[in-house]
Nucleic acid binder design. Structure first.
Lengths: 199, 199, 199, 199
DNA sequence: GATGAATGAGCTTTCATTCAT
DNA sequence: CATGAATGAAAGCTCATTCAT
């Protein structure tokens, strides 16, 4: 029956998400997932063809949405800030916060799966992909402020750190408003940090 | 064959360090370690009494040195900077760089093992310990600048990020001078980021 | 294949009982047990969660029944023998034999596992427990006959010996009537042996 | 050097005896024996050609002495007791005690090794051998008292029990006098037990 | 749709023994 | 005389996956 099936599928997804988040893909135990979902190993394979397929089912939407985003289809328009306002941190905070609103709503915990728990899956390169994107972004900013800044290596380091802080916020805080507030702080922090570096 | 002893011990340590760095303690395969070291499982136990003992052999010096450090025996004196110089980033950079000199020399790659690959070992709490220390440090700084800053959660987030950036530098760059330079940049970055947050 | 389930479970229990009886718990090889049972190590763990759990499955009923017994729930009433009849061994034999009837029926070979093959399991103290009980019993008897008997050490020695004889009978003779007959002889033997000691 | 060698040999024998007594031959660890003896695995094989040879070295004298004994070369003369005295237990005790004197002096703890710890060695049948001898002895006695006694199975059971009690005394009591006293009690116990059985 | 039996490779660890030095 | 490096088999246990029912 369709209804029954979907209940089981959902139960598996729910417990799997928890297990993958805690242990990562490789260390997650399929046995424990299905047990906690109230079904059996055998039945699991009626719903998903492998442990990997289960992981894919959890993150593919998140992944595709993200790829769509970075391909510019839903690009977050860059907020324009007058040169005069660039030192008014309160104002900048407000603007960032506003621009983050839609973005944060869309974030789900599965983003964490994609970034931090995907080793051993087809998505294991996603983290690197995002780091590269962020790195480009940081380097752009750095160039903008000071084309002579010599520590190009900082681009990648900051990118990795930023992503770490970002997923850390998602792991620890589940309420949209708090996430939005903290990500805003993070962006402020990185903006001024980068400015300092390049002075 | 006993002449080879130290060679084998070294070979095991070398391949183990690599395997632990790549997979973490729990996921590292002793079989692979000894195979890559050119010996056998049975022989491994002539050198180390367990997988855990092997890990301990790799990191205990590093750990003890670190604990000694944070207990203040070789405390890094806080550089004194005149109020007037606080905005002279070039000067600050020079001072930090100078103060880092001895510290960076002491850093080995095994610090990464301690922080990022020690789950399942007696050292698994070291990362949290360091994050707590850094968090205190960040919160102090934040308080200093602005006792009313409300996003206390940022203390832990920044702490975790900083440690991530720090070990990332160690993972990617092996030369002392480059490490010293990049860690300096990291500290500059965090100092001004924190200042921005609290304005 | 799931129809076979109980067959396999039984096969494992059967071969395990044999192996445990021959080698004891610690020295029994799970690989040999499952091989003789016609299955594999991996499959074994679909039936029992550990080697220990397998042993427990074999003896827990026996153990619980025994504990119930010594807690007096089904206490064997002490046969009353007239002072005048105390030297009529034929009569005593008949009485003991009668009183043993229900007790012997309940005995299974797994009692041997409990007593002689349980080192390394949660039941490893059962033998000592029984020896202590028997020792108390023997000491009581000795006191009754001769409160001045000085070789108190004999209590424990006789207790251990008696239990040895008892399990030996179980090991060698499988028919209820024969067991009943031999245990009767054993009790007669000990009764008069104790009387002789204390004269 | 001869002296040095014998020290090592003795050290190995001493620790081996302890380990074999505690764990039995199969479960004894050669590594632990040599470690406790203050030498190394490699050196062990300069003294004994195998774990088995070590065991043999411990018990062969004891075994040969015992075989010599049962072959009648040093037969313990059967004490002659007048028919009239057969019920004077005090007297019987004295006589047995006297006859045991030389025998008990000769007993060493290695007899326990031979009987209870020799599984896996060439001596593993010794226990059965002795049980057979004792069985014959008991059956003889039984026949003597009552040729019609029907429970012939008791011969083997009593034999096994007796040996158990005997080695138990050796395990628990190390002083010659106490051993002598308790073995006397044991013999008295069995003598009158057998008499009771056959009445 | 659901069950769980079955498989085989993997894990870390212990062992007695051999032998080059 | 002594050392301990080396081996290979065995131990109990976990795993993802397959498939008969």
């Amino acid at each position: 029956m369709q209804i029954k099936k979907e209940e089981v599928r959902e139960a598996i997804l729910t417990t799997a998400e928890k297990e993958f988040l805690e242990k990562g893909f490789n260390n997650a135990s399929l046995r424990k997932i299905v047990k906690n979902a109230g079904t059996t190993i055998g039945n699991f394979y009626n719903y998903y063809e492998s442990k990997e397929a289960l992981f894919v089912a959890l993150v593919e939407k998140e992944y595709n949405g993200f790829i769509h985003l970075i391909n510019g289809h839903h690009a977050i328009k860059k907020p324009e800030i007058n040169e005069a306002d660039k030192n008014d941190i309160g104002l900048i905070r407000t603007i960032i916060n506003h621009y983050l609103e839609d973005f944060v709503k869309v974030l789900s915990d599965r983003f964490i799966l994609l970034i931090e728990c995907s080793e051993g899956t087809p998505y294991e390169d996603t983290k690197q992909l995002i780091i590269r994107l962020l790195e480009e972004h940081f380097i752009e900013h750095i160039q903008e402020h000071n084309a002579n800044y010599s520590n190009k290596e900082m681009g990648e380091i900051l990118a990795k750190q930023f992503l770490e802080g970002f997923t850390d916020i998602l792991r620890k805080y589940k309420k949209t408003e708090i996430r939005q507030k903290l990500i805003t702080e993070l962006i402020v922090f990185y903006s001024f940090g980068v400015m300092a570096l390049t002075q």
